[in-house]
Amino acid sequence: MCLAVPSRILEIHTDRAKADFGGVHRTISIQLMPDVKVGDYVLVHTGFAIGKVDPKEAELTLKLVSKMGDLSPVRLLKPDQWGKE
């Protein structure tokens, strides 16, 4: 029930918007996100935009993961220090 799907806002009509779900267009409510703009990506749950999807943050996460292994290893505790810090 907490399933939410990313979509892109195509048109805004007061408290509703037409949104693109990978080629399928649906009308959604933007009452929970009144500041949304055309072109924004949002998560849609039960017909409501509930939060933005930030392309810059998405890029940062992907970059972080693709660089993993190249970074210096995290400092690990020795077994006798587990749970003591």
Partner: peptide, 16 residues
């Protein structure tokens, strides 16, 4: 867990 920390971290930065 391995560094003995306990904090709120966010792996879903694009939406949270």
């Amino acid at each position: 867990v391995m560094t003995g920390k306990a904090e709120v971290a966010n792996a879903y930065g694009r939406s949270v």
